[in-house]
Design a protein around this nucleic acid. Structure first.
Lengths: 213, 213
DNA sequence: TAGATTGTTAATCGATTAACAATC
DNA sequence: TAGATTGTTAATCGATTAACAATC
């Protein structure tokens, strides 16, 4: 097992492996070789073995990987045994959709609260989460230590809210505001879902496909 | 101007540049050097100049880049002058949120229709889009050539719907189904928004941050 | 045992960074 | 003109692929 810095590329493939292993489990596949896995995922066997070797030795020579075992290891590596607590800040369309659809608990995250500024939304419930007043957020976070904040507020509020939750000890921000956040606090990870970046990337490939191919 | 194959990394930075240039425009900045842009974006000046040089010469020696001019060029490169037509398939929480929030027209995309299987949703409107019956989708697409399909159906329907729209000439799929799509048709681009991959990536960094740093 | 497939080391390939002549 | 900054070529760095001894 190597012990160098692990690149972001490797890390972002881990959850792809996890998804594939879940699919294999559903299909009743109990073991798989790196070459078969590579074929199914469009990766080289070498890359898969390299990626996994960053974290340990999960296979057996001459045999391959046990699907259930590897799945379990990956889940652990990805932090799914940490039971991170999550709050949603901003219950607009996106925040609402995430609460209803994201199924945090199936990934072993613990969705504990949601906040919004709108008087109409405060007090309403989405699934079993009752929306609280954003004014109460920092007080609440101080009493309820929270790992992750889902940021689904308007762009204009992004930086202010992000810094507020970071001040309250939140360690990860899942950012849906379509803007880049500048934090004053160190040691907070930001994971961006920039919808417009993604759509424009698709748009680029469509354009090139049209003109170049 | 080089003319090699342009890497996906470069392409995904283009929309980040665009966003930054919009921000600079808002702040009234009219010109910027690669070194200042790099400082603001956390990139090296070299990388920015390399990236842009894939597409042309947009700067002036000794002067830098005109924000408005570069913004315009990037928008064109990204296909924003193509006025791609878009349909949303699956008006659940996510589909609904995208129709209401995404503001396709501000990016010069033309949202033309939405489809769902649910009798309760068919006939209802979101903004100015009236939800149609999914059964009518292929007929409709044949009459209304469409560039992009937003896929926000349940995982179980992902492959079937994706292949159906591809058959009808759709050239890009924006995939929110949290599963990887296997298309039988060639020449269709798929851009994935895998929420769970993103959340688990954040989770990984939180876990490592806790244990390693 | 022989065959298969791992984990890891070495080789290759590509992406980022640095350097610099060109020039506004 | 002198100073600044580009576009591009060269150097470096890192990621992917290939090869192979170890071993189940």
């Amino acid at each position: 097992m190597k012990r160098e810095r692990i690149s972001d590329n490797v890390i972002r493939r881990l959850s792809m492996y996890l998804r594939k292993l879940d699919e294999l489990t559903d299909r009743g596949v109990e073991r798989i070789s790196s070459s078969e896995l590579g074929k199914q995922m469009g990766l080289t066997p070498s890359q898969i073995r390299q990626d996994l070797s960053c974290f340990g030795e999960f296979g057996q020579q001459g045999f391959g990987y046990k699907v259930a075992e590897l799945r379990k290891q990956l889940a652990k590596i990805l932090g799914m045994e940490e039971n991170f607590s999550v709050v949603v800040v901003g219950v607009g369309n996106i925040g609402h959709a995430l609460i209803q659809n994201m199924n945090f608990s199936s990934l072993h995250f613990d969705l504990t609260a949601a906040f919004d500024v709108s008087q109409e939304k405060i007090g309403t419930s989405v699934l079993d989460i009752t929306v609280m007043d954003s004014n109460e957020m920092t007080d609440w976070l101080k009493v309820h230590p929270t790992d992750i904040a889902v940021l689904s507020v308007p762009k204009s509020a992004a930086n202010e809210v992000a810094n507020a939750v970071a001040q309250c000890g939140v360690k990860g921000i899942w950012n849906f505001t379509n803007t880049d956040i500048e934090l004053k606090t160190d040691g907070v990870f930001i994971e961006n879902i920039h919808f417009s970046d993604s759509l424009l990337t698709l748009s680029y490939y469509l354009t090139r496909g049209k003109n170049d191919v």
